[in-house]
Deep mutational scan, measured.
Amino acid sequence: IGSLMYASIFGNVSAIIQRLYSGTARYHTQMLRVREFIRFHQIPNPLRQRLEEYFQHAWSYTNGIDMNAVLKGFPECLQADICLHLNRSLLQHCKPFRGATKGCLRALAMKFKTTHAPPGDTLVHAGDLLTALYFISRGSIEILRGDVVVAILGKNDIFGEPLNLYARPGKSNGDVRALTYCDLHKIHRDDLLEVLDMYPEFSDHFWSSLEITFNLRDTNMIPGSPGSTELEGGFSRQRKRKLSFRRRTDKDTEQPGEVSALGPGRAGAGPSSRGRPGGPWGESPSSGPSSPESSEDEGPGRSSSPLRLVPFSSPRPPGEPPGGEPLMEDCEKSSDTCNPLSGAFSGVSNIFSFWGDSRGRQYQELPRCPAPTPSLLNIPLSSPGRRPRGDVESRLDALQRQLNRLETRLSADMATVLQLLQRQMTLVPPAYSAVTTPGPGPTSTSPLLPVSPLPTLTLDSLSQVSQFMACEELPPGAPELPQEGPTRRLSLPGQLGALTSQPLHRHGSDPG
């Protein structure tokens, strides 16, 4: 009997000691992992102490058991019943959930998450997105703005933001810190809205009876308010094209079509300037034949640059190039080494500058006005007194259609001029006259002087055409309008007829 009692007592005591040691061994194993994590990542002392304290409290609170892992091991129907039991206190005593059906309560219970916070733990920081609604079931918390405590909340209090009033989550206007050990039930806004969409009859009752104890939403960050730039940057990543407008005076608003859609830094370009900076079609017209890549860069430059609305530039004389043409100036200075066709295309550029300027006046029909002061630039669209967005969009579309028509007509005119030049060069190729044979009589004449090349004649003739079109064909006081194609086609051969009437002889060394 004594040996039996000794064996039973010894066996029970050893089993008890073994169970104690097993729990202690698990605790030390998990604690060792936490300390190894702290050492590996070199976490500083204040945060390291918070980690160790939280682990110790969580171990004593749950005995080292992962409740979520245990809950996920059950089937979904059983999980709903378990969640309904775990959140029964909240669902029974909170006013917004009263009167809900059994199915609605089960769906809500599945969406709730339980959070346990030790003292000093910050649940929400200032500036964080308010993605959830919090219900306090135990403990107390404090809300701070800077170093000032603005509120202390306790059991059955609710904090967050009214989700039904805002389409997008706002930002917190303060820090939420736990004063004691707290148990909180939180539900994400997407989950709550999903359940309320499934039960629309409960939705009206819920929003009407929901009383948020403390609204954390920062009202200064609401979209459309003066301080909402940061919020707009976070939620409006896919922005449309940006529009900046110059201020319109009362006198300017009476004149229709007073602005032109141009790229940034293009205030001095012609009315047909689009795409790359520098001139019509993204580059100076005089350098068009020598740089074919300008047409390839036109599309990307047009689509990537934001639109700006600026006044037209001052008018340019008909014979003056659009500006920024070092290529043609070098050719004029060193005409001995340049291609003979460069002079002809220089005359073509003069005609283009004249036609572009006159067509700009035809479509816009307003006098040039000086540029406004820099303080009046970049007025935002949302400022008071601005035109409605639809009106601005319609004006932009009208300007775009005008620019497209202008570009089409300029292309047709350019093709006409090039065809005339090619026809003239085919009839009378460039050549130098040879020395004529002296006559049989004693009164022999001296050799004839060489005839100037055709490109120079073409430049003079085209300059005469531009001056003739600019000065004589337009009646005084009438708006400057571009001439039609047949009129220009008839004027060019008439001007060139006198020049080509002389018999030109080919030089023996000319390969053409």
Rank of each mutant, 00 (worst) to 15 (best):
F468V: 13
K155R: 12
L418G: 06
M425K: 09
K186T: 10
G263A: 12
T213C: 05
L376E: 10
L196H: 03
L496A: 08
S303Y: 06
T436M: 10
G257V: 08
T436S: 11
F206K: 01
P321D: 08
T249F: 09
S353M: 07
E161G: 03
S290C: 10
S501T: 10
L153M: 04
R405P: 03
S452A: 14
F345R: 05
A178R: 03
D157I: 01
P450R: 10
R386G: 09
N173Y: 10
G234V: 11
R389S: 15
T426Q: 13
E232V: 11
L406E: 01
E320I: 13
P450L: 08
S444P: 11
G174I: 01
G324I: 09
Q419D: 06
R247P: 13
M425I: 09
L449K: 10
A412P: 03
A178E: 03
Q422G: 10
I187V: 08
P380T: 04
E329G: 06
P482F: 05
T426A: 09
E320P: 06
G160C: 01
A434K: 07
Q495R: 10
P317V: 08
G508M: 11
L421P: 04
A398L: 08
S375R: 09
L499V: 08
L418D: 03
T500S: 14
L410K: 04
G270V: 13
S466P: 09
N404R: 14
I212P: 03
R423D: 04
S284C: 15
E365S: 14
A415E: 11
S466V: 08
M198D: 14
P455Y: 05
I136H: 01
G224E: 08
E472S: 11
Q419V: 07
S383W: 05
T408I: 08
T416K: 04
M469D: 15
G324Q: 15
G323Q: 12
G441Q: 15
F354R: 12
G160V: 02
Q483S: 11
L377A: 03
L504R: 09
T213G: 04
Q467E: 04
E230Q: 12
S286H: 07
D510P: 12
P315H: 04
P493N: 08
N339Y: 10
L399Y: 08
S346M: 08
L179C: 08
E329P: 04
D190Q: 07
S463C: 08
G139I: 01
T416C: 10
V417H: 11
L144H: 08
N339T: 11
I136N: 01
R389N: 04
L163H: 12
T426F: 11
N339C: 05
L474E: 13
P223R: 12
R168C: 08
R248N: 09
P223M: 10
I143W: 01
N339D: 13
E407Q: 08
P370W: 04
S501F: 07
S394G: 13
E473H: 12
S303W: 10
Y181N: 08
P306Y: 13
P372Y: 08
R138C: 10
K251N: 13
R316V: 06
T131I: 08
C182V: 09
S303E: 12
S260P: 11
F468I: 14
K251C: 11
G227F: 09
Q467N: 05
V348I: 15
D252M: 08
P370L: 09
D510I: 05
P388F: 13
K186P: 03
G494P: 12
P200R: 05
L216S: 01
S225C: 08
L129T: 15
P482K: 15
L210P: 01
S137I: 05
F235H: 13
R239F: 12
N215W: 01
R241F: 07
G512C: 06
P226A: 03
R389A: 11
P372E: 08
N350W: 01
P226K: 11
E332C: 09
R274C: 13
P200I: 01
G234P: 11
L192E: 01
P315V: 08
A431C: 09
S461R: 09
S272Y: 12
A415V: 11
A151D: 02
E332P: 09
I212W: 02
G174E: 03
S290G: 13
R247G: 13
A434Q: 15
L499F: 09
E325K: 15
H205M: 04
A267P: 06
R138S: 12
P256R: 12
L406D: 03
R401G: 10
T443H: 13
P223G: 11
S209R: 10
S501M: 13
V148S: 12
S346H: 08
E258T: 09
G282S: 05
I158C: 11
D397K: 05
P169N: 03
G512F: 01
S303C: 07
G299H: 06
L144V: 10
D147E: 10
S466N: 12
P306A: 15
L420C: 06
H505G: 11
G356H: 07
T337Q: 08
R361T: 08
P300Q: 04
F159N: 01
C338T: 07
N156L: 05
P223V: 12
N339V: 10
P226D: 10
P453N: 08
R423A: 07
C369F: 06
E393F: 01
P511Q: 09
A371Y: 11
P306Q: 14
T180S: 10
R246G: 12
V428R: 07
F202P: 03
L399W: 13
R409W: 04
G224N: 10
E161L: 02
L474G: 08
Q424V: 07
L474T: 07
I152L: 04
I222D: 12
D510E: 08
S228I: 09
R239Q: 13
S273N: 03
F159K: 01
G477M: 15
S137V: 09
P450A: 09
G139E: 01
P476V: 09
T500P: 08
A398G: 12
R239P: 07
S140D: 04
L381R: 13
L153N: 01
E472W: 11
S236E: 10
R386T: 12
E320W: 07
S286D: 04
A398V: 08
N215P: 01
S272I: 12
P311G: 05
P440A: 13
M469T: 12
L496G: 09
L196E: 02
L196G: 03
L243I: 12
F159H: 01
S203W: 04
E393S: 05
R145Y: 07
E325C: 07
A267F: 09
P226W: 12
K155I: 04
T416H: 06
D191G: 02
L427F: 14
P447A: 11
R368A: 13
D330C: 07
S236H: 10
I379K: 15
R274P: 08
G282D: 11
P226T: 10
L504K: 05
P372V: 10
V417M: 15
H507Y: 08
K240D: 14
A167R: 10
S349H: 08
I143E: 01
P311Y: 12
G233Y: 11
P493V: 11
A498R: 10
S342I: 06
M221P: 10
F352Q: 13
G146M: 08
C338D: 10
P511L: 09
G512Y: 06
L133F: 04
D413V: 01
S273C: 01
N378A: 10
R168W: 10
E472A: 08
T445M: 14
